[in-house]
Design a protein around this nucleic acid. Structure first.
Length: 922
RNA sequence: GCUCGGGUGGUGGAAUAGGUAGACACGCAGGACUUAAAAUCCUGUGGGCAGAAAUGCCCGUACGGGUUCGAUUCCCGUCCCGAGCACCA
């Protein structure tokens, strides 16, 4: 049998071996340090994996294998985020149960993943749609339902404790994250009927039903969370989204805003990702101020939020959001028609239209006037779309001189503009910067803006007309979806009250339905289920959103078969939290916020031991497609090569990248590709048809999808793994281009040939030469430092250089080759495993030890150093052999150039800096 | 508009506590082996100038300045590309 590098045979052999021997199964072992490496688990779509998907998985697998070689007990699991819209849409179209298609897709994904040679412990696999898994999603929801957030102790507490407090002292002393509740005493509470008590408690629960403006997507027939909407369109499907007031389940994520923000500092995430979360949380510090407003004889106190309390002397009007509850109360009878007209107009607009018209200023006067609490001046109250109901209090004090939006509004409606900063010119635009010296501002005159802001707040607090206040942009998460394929809520309704289904009855499994569509009455699909009842009462018909199942999956991997708890205390204390999490940035403001929130909640109630779920996070870039084009001359079936196309009137047509090699079209394959092209004619250049190309998203419609199975077929999994890493830095987005893969494939073959001379094993048991040792130790050093910094592309280069050098040295020495096999094994597990055994080793290469780096082998023999005198560079000096710093010093002093520059000065000290510079102090 | 990243050969990309820019690979060109192809190997490959040649010199890391003996790297300004947020008071 020829001993050529036969990857298909090798890969099959070892994949079977690993699976039989359960090589990657991991058990808790207190004698070893643990390390938890996690990938963001995939949604198993019908299209299967393309080469972009495994990028992050390959990186995490390399790191896991590396950590194992370093002696860690590595948890590296994989699972499936299996609830979701595509399976449901497919079910609606075909009538196939989503569970079935999901199952099939998962099988396909697993097959594809295993082929690439990942070291997952499949015994720990989780699937979010598995009742044994979603039992714990439902459990967590019930916990949130039965807890409230105590701001005083900054943690979640059981609702029973809240009831006790209410019974004893009402809610006056309670500082909770909650909805709007009136104050009540213990006596009042005790006299409330059950319904009233329920309504009050609902305002405090962490999972609660609340009526708010939500993102309603009519086309999908469901509500969506903020992070599921972008530019007024749904992320899934791209359908328009409108604002609608609805009663929905929500999670009180906003209660955790401050902790979610401040704990970012403790995480090893990229700054850009932290910035994204910071922006999303959107902390802003300012003050609330009360304005008295008169509508006829009625007087109201309206609270506004501002970050610029210092500008209170420049307030010339007030503005309410159209959705504000004050609108009705403050509209004077004679303005009623106009106001209503305006409100209808504003309501009719979709979110998208609103955004498109941000420049257009609209508004209407209410007919009421407010009183500036500091100046006692009377100012008009307006309504405008530019004020948002969901932020702050839905009402603002307008300072046109120093806020560009207020400025535009004032110009439009001819309202006064009073400048408050010395020397600023507000004739053309507002002066928004927080700098300068205050004027026209009473007691603030002469202060800088930075001094005036706190001074103004202090004054406001002193007068009792407001207080210091921090506002967040982060909203509570809408948690219901009017869909079928998601976790059912463990909630039923008794006499209209929401009641928890007890934990013993979980999991509450998804019922069968005849169709996966909403009912004619517009109810969610679960309304179709027969007997969707608990103890004769109706069960909640919405299901949970996609992020529910993915919020705690990393905990379940620690203890996937536990029927008593999400994770046992013991196992949680061993694995603690994820040490390395790899995934895309697209989850920055979704999953990565929700998971942190979920984890903090479980931490508060004592179920997990770490405050943060993901210690270090690396974002892999997206792999885009590289599309190819052919150019058809209009109204013909003739195609003209890329460089000649300017001479004709052509249409650009996508062509399947799999029949293009190095931008040269395989003409026969093209003719067979589609019937239309059977008789195509070509205008060639130099006998070839050159295609155009562009970088686009990888998608079927652009014929640029590259399937990893095909790559494994022609080059092998090791080549695929190596090439994906070689493409460029992990974090960077880059187009996939199969051209170039030959390079890494050649490398593996070259590596193979170090071991075999034709068919004969050519490894010798002899002592390594110094040159060989130097290559080895240089490599160890490089790989170690580069893997630790996730610079896998340079690792691959380092391997190539080393193998080239060993080939030149004709190295056949086991002492060198054996450690190199180990070094390379995280990258190319199959061929490394084979060679490891060829060298006569037992067990798996995974159990080997990472080679130890010895600096003494790698000291340079000849080098050139720049030499500087008193920090001023003068000349360079060449030295041969390895020298100690002392010897370098002598060599420098002996150099004739040194004498030239010394010019009679006495040398005090010669400093040899490792960074290749020698400093001479005179 | 605001906040982050980033601009290096024909291509992907190396190199930053400031110290020989372009490692490694692709592509291309030439050559060896072969009836031929595949595979494999060797040589050259940023631009310009001089030379028969070895080689030498000049210019080059988006653009313009600055600091420095020395800048792809640090600072200021400009342009371009990408990502995120976007009437957040």
């Amino acid at each position: 049998m020829a001993k050529d590098y036969n990857f298909s045979e090798i890969e099959k052999k070892w994949q079977q071996y690993w699976s039989e021997k359960e090589t990657y199964k991991v058990v808790e072992d207190s004698s070893k340090p643990k390390f938890y490496v996690l990938d963001m688990f995939p949604y198993p779509s019908g299209a299967g994996l393309h080469v972009g998907h495994p990028l992050g998985y390959i990186a995490s697998d390399i790191y896991s294998r590396y950590k194992r070689l370093k002696g860690f007990n590595v948890l590296h699991p994989m699972g499936f985020d299996a609830f979701g819209l595509p399976a449901e849409q497919y079910a609606i179209q075909t009538g196939q149960h989503p569970a079935k298609t999901t199952e099939e897709n998962i099988a396909r994904y697993k097959q594809q993943l295993n082929r690439i040679g990942f070291s997952y412990d499949w015994s720990r696999e989780v699937r979010t749609c598995d009742p044994e898994y979603y039992k714990w999603t439902q459990w967590a929801f019930l916990q949130m339902f039965s807890h409230w957030y105590d701001k005083a102790s900054s943690k979640a507490r059981p609702i029973e404790q809240l009831v006790e407090i209410f019974q004893e002292s009402g809610n006056l002393s309670v500082d909770a994250a909650c909805g709007e509740v009136e104050q009540f005493s213990a006596e009042q509470w005790n006299e409330f009927d059950q319904q009233r008590k329920d309504a009050v408690l609902m305002q405090y629960r962490i999972a609660y039903i609340g009526e708010t403006a939500v993102n309603w997507c009519p086309k999908l027939g469901t509500v969506l969370a903020n992070d599921e909407v972008k530019e007024g369109l749904s992320i899934r499907g791209g359908f328009p989204v409108e604002q609608k007031k609805m009663k929905q389940w929500q999670l009180r994520v906003s209660a955790y805003a401050e902790r979610l923000l401040s704990d970012l500092d403790s995480l090893e995430w990229t700054e850009s990702l932290k910035d994204m979360q910071k922006n999303w949380i959107g902390r802003s510090q300012g003050a609330e101020m009360i304005f008295k407003v008169m509508n006829g004889t009625e007087e109201y106190d309206i609270t506004i939020f501002t970050t610029r309390a210092d500008t209170v002397f420049g307030v010339t009007f007030m503005v309410l959001a159209p959705e504000s509850e004050w609108v009705e109360k403050l509209t004077a009878p004679e303005y009623k028609t106009q106001v209503e007209e305006y409100l209808t107009m504003a309501k009719r607009k979709t979110e998208r239209e609103r955004m498109a018209q941000t420049k257009k200023v609209t508004g209407v006067f209410t007919g009421s006037y407010a009183v500036n609490p500091i100046t006692s001046e009377k100012i008009p109250v307006w309504i405008s779309e530019y004020v948002l109901a969901g932020y702050g209090t839905g009402a603002i004090m307008a300072v046109p001189a120093h806020d560009s939006r207020d400025y535009a509004f004032a110009k439009q409606f001819n309202l006064p503009i009073i400048p408050l900063i010395e020397g600023c010119d507000v004739s053309q635009e507002s002066f928004d910067a927080k700098e300068g010296i205050m004027c026209n501002s009473g007691f603030l005159n002469g202060m800088s803006v930075q001094e005036a802001i706190p001074a103004a707040i202090e004054k406001v607090e002193e007068m009792g007309i407001g207080k210091r206040k921090v506002n967040y942009r982060l909203r509570d998460a809408i948690f219901s979806r009017q869909r079928y394929w998601g976790e059912p809520f463990p909630i039923y309704y008794k006499d209209g009250r929401a009641v928890a289904i007890p934990f013993e009855s979980l999991p509450l499994e998804l019922p069968e339905v005849d169709k996966f569509l909403p009912t004619e009455a517009g109810e969610p699909p679960l309304a179709r289920a027969k007997d969707w009842q608990y103890e004769g009462c109706p069960i909640e018909k919405s299901t949970m959103p996609g992020f529910a199942g993915s919020s705690a999956y990393y905990l379940r991997y620690m203890d996937p078969c536990n029927t008593q708890a999400l994770v046992s205390r013991e196992k949680n204390e061993y694995w603690r939290s994820v040490d390395l999490y790899i995934g895309g940035t697209e989850h920055a403001t979704g999953h990565l916020i929700y998971s942190r929130f979920w984890n903090k909640f479980l931490y508060d109630i004592g179920y997990v031991c770490e405050n943060e779920p993901f210690k270090k996070l690396v974002n892999q870039g997206m792999i885009q497609g590289r599309s190819n084009f052919v150019y058809r001359i209009k109204d013909t079936n003739t195609f003209v090569s890329y460089n000649l196309k300017s001479q004709y009137d052509t249409t650009e047509i996508h062509v399947d990248v799999n029949i293009v090699n190095n931008d040269r079209l395989d003409i026969d394959a093209f003719k067979n590709w589609m019937p239309d092209y059977q008789n195509a004619e070509f205008i060639l250049e130099d006998g070839e048809y050159i295609c155009g190309w562009a970088v686009e998203k990888m998608s079927k419609s652009m014929f640029n999808v590259v399937n990893p199975d095909n790559i494994c077929e022609t080059y092998g999994a090791d080549t695929l793994r190596l090439y994906e890493m070689f493409l460029g830095p992990l974090e960077q987005s880059k187009p996939w281009d199969t051209k170039g893969i030959d390079g890494v494939h050649r490398f593996i073959k070259k590596f193979w040939r170090l071991f075999f001379d034709g068919e004969e094993l050519a490894v010798a048991e002899r002592k390594a030469t110094p040159a060989e040792l130097k290559v080895l130790h240089n490599l160890i050093h490089k790989i170690e430092t580069q893997i630790e910094s996730f610079s896998f592309n340079t690792c691959v280069s380092a391997f190539m250089i080393a193998v080239n050098e060993l080939t030149d040295l004709k190295c056949n020495c086991k002492e060198i080759l054996s450690p190199i096999v180990v070094l390379l094994s995280p990258f190319t597990p199959h061929v490394s495993e084979e060679l490891w055994h060829v060298l006569g080793n037992e067990g798996s290469v995974c159990d080997a030890q990472f080679p130890v780096y010895e600096e003494s082998y790698t000291v340079e023999n000849s080098f050139e150093y720049p030499v500087s005198f008193n920090g001023k560079m003068r000349f360079k000096i060449s030295l041969s052999k390895s020298l100690s710093p002392k010897e370098v010093e002598q060599a420098v002093l002996a150099d004739p150039n040194t004498e030239k520059y010394l010019a009679g000065n006495i040398v005090k000290k010669v400093i040899v800096v490792p960074s290749k510079i020698i400093n001479i102090v005179m």
